[in-house]
Design a protein around this nucleic acid. Structure first.
Lengths: 161, 161
DNA sequence: CCCGAACTGTTGCGAGCGCAACAATAGTAT
DNA sequence: ATACTATTGTTGCGCTCGCAACAGTTCGGG
């Protein structure tokens, strides 16, 4: 892996530069996440699950897959790992015998809080490259883009049906 | 998969909102890419390789892995696929008998040009959600962030050594 | 009540990718 | 020249993830 190819001069249009930057930014942000979470023995996927849980009711598996936009089978296997690690436990849902919910163990709660604090701190640090004003403006841009792109995907999905 | 969980109100800080948006944007952009490339029988990875090639010398495998930030083995297998599909062919490098380069076949060149045109058009379309002025401002933000984050990763890499 | 449709979670399978080890080749220091 | 090291590409292995099929359960229309 190298980070040499980061000049945008040869790219034909601003639209294309923007496109490339979205991709590149994701790559460096993800790499930063892995650095932060690795000392806790957590992958980004496991972390995202952990953050959605609590020590009480927790969440149903189907809720987790909906929230994280991953397949149900992925959640099944993530929870398998995390249960084996002693961070979470499955509980049958008495009101719906198909369903289970997943809640944090004491160990999982501790891990969640520590990892969350470290991750939040890291985000503040990394995103702090931009001042609060610029961050706000960037969020506005992103919201407009994401809304538009999302609609386009949903449209093409419904066309497939 | 659903796109329901897109509100940012519960997120604690602007830095964190920004972080989430980078991730979300990547997801919708990637999904859009797959839609565009699927009619050509191309995955995003194959497309990225194709764009870097030409019908003359092409590129060495190591160059491709450097430019695309993927492992050498990934390139080996991508080229295997694309050679089998008849889009590219390997040529031994006479000046370095360890190396090969990969060049487009006539079929590959045609595919590359068609897919590139379709992808460029799609990018213009999708990024065009923002006007030219906003795009330019966004690029400036991104460049600052990417530069800062990149340096941070390179620093932590060198610390590991 | 009952039958078919929808939903929840699990499993098998395959695609994609990174890492480590390897053979072949090239570069370099003595 | 020799020996040591670096580089190029390939392969085996393991991990992550999505899709399709499945069993068990719930829901709704007749």
């Amino acid at each position: 892996m190298s980070f040499d190819d980061f000049d945008l001069d040869h790219i034909p249009s601003n639209a294309h530069r923007l496109y490339r930057l979205i991709h590149d930014l994701y790559v460096v942000v993800d790499a930063g996440d892995r650095d932060v979470l690795e000392p806790f023995g957590l992958t980004p996927s496991q972390y995202r699950v952990l953050v959605l849980l609590d020590a009480d009711y927790g969440q149903r598996l189907i809720t987790l897959s909906d929230r994280l936009l991953v397949a149900r089978s992925t959640i099944t296997r993530l929870i398998d790992q995390m249960e084996h690690a002693g961070w979470v436990h499955r509980v049958d849902d008495p009101s719906d015998r198909r369903a289970q919910h997943v809640a944090l163990t004491p160990l999982g709660l501790t891990l969640r809080n520590q990892a969350y604090a470290a991750h939040e701190h890291s985000i503040e640090d990394r995103m702090g490259v931009l001042g609060e004003r610029d961050q706000q403006r960037l969020i506005d841009f992103f919201l407009r883009m994401r809304a538009a792109l999302r609609n386009r995907i949903i449209e093409s999905d419904s066309q497939k049906k």
